[in-house]
């Protein structure tokens, strides 16, 4: 649907849903949940996906889900708007890359730039925001790089491996966004030959 440099954003369909249980039990889930260590069965994952599908259908879930797909077709994870409030023109972002081999390689940032453009240029959002935790250095670096502002720090909000950590709130206003092309130029992102 949207073509990036390293990845494309595509519908979050069967290829992705089939990986959900594996990702739910993997390290990605720890980072995505702010410190939870989940041990979930296939049936539990199936039930969660069922609830999600029903919420989307009934309109209770106002989000937009994309799959992040590598150029060779590998499903990498989720990128999307997890909570959209049209009357505030405000959308919350959420992302997850299931396989650690694809962390810190620019795949997530590539997908993020695509979804930011989508939210501003197609859904006419005024602001995008997201939350992460004070121990998630990868996301913090990514936010600074892409141009988000750290707006709030919820003290000792979450527990990870026995330690309390702050929750971080990042925001990006439409007026602060130069557009994907300009951001790619600014960050010097390039298409890479794989393998």
């Amino acid at each position: 649907m949207f073509e990036g440099l390293l990845v494309d954003l595509v519908p979050y369909g069967k290829d992705f849903l089939d990986r959900e249980n594996e990702w739910a039990n993997a390290e990605a889930s720890f980072w995505g949940s702010g410190g939870d260590r989940r041990v979930v069965s296939r049936a539990q994952t199936q039930a969660r996906l069922q609830r999600w599908a029903e919420a989307l259908e009934s309109g209770h879930d106002t989000g937009v889900a994309f799959g992040i797909r590598a150029k060779d077709g590998t499903p990498l994870g989720f990128m999307g708007l997890t909570w959209v409030l049209p009357y505030h023109r405000l959308a919350m972002l959420g992302a997850k890359i299931g396989d650690p081999a694809y962390w810190s390689g620019g795949y997530g940032t590539d997908a993020l730039l695509l979804v930011i453009d989508y939210a501003f240029d197609w859904l006419d959002m005024h602001k995008l925001w997201l939350t992460t935790t004070g121990f998630n250095r990868r996301v913090m670096r990514q936010m600074e790089k892409v141009g988000f502002t750290l707006e709030s720090r919820a003290r000792r909000e979450t527990l990870a491996d026995g330690q309390w950590h702050d929750g971080l709130f990042y925001g990006l206003l439409r007026t602060e966004w130069p557009g994907r092309d300009a951001k790619i130029e600014q960050l010097g992102l390039r298409v890479r030959a794989e393998g």
């Binding site: 009357y87 505030h88 023109r89 405000l90 005024h126 602001k127 925001w129 502002t149 707006e151 709030s152 720090r153 919820a154 003290r155 000792r156 909000e157 709130f169 925001g171 206003l173």
Partner: peptide
């Protein structure tokens, strides 16, 4: 409560975008 941050222009209110002030108490 402690004031922990300001979510800028976060909420649409009567024709303007208004900041949302966040607080926490432990």
């Amino acid at each position: 409560f402690s004031h922990e941050g300001t979510l800028r222009q976060h909420v649409r209110w009567d024709g303007d975008y208004v900041d949302l002030e966040l607080f926490g108490l432990l």
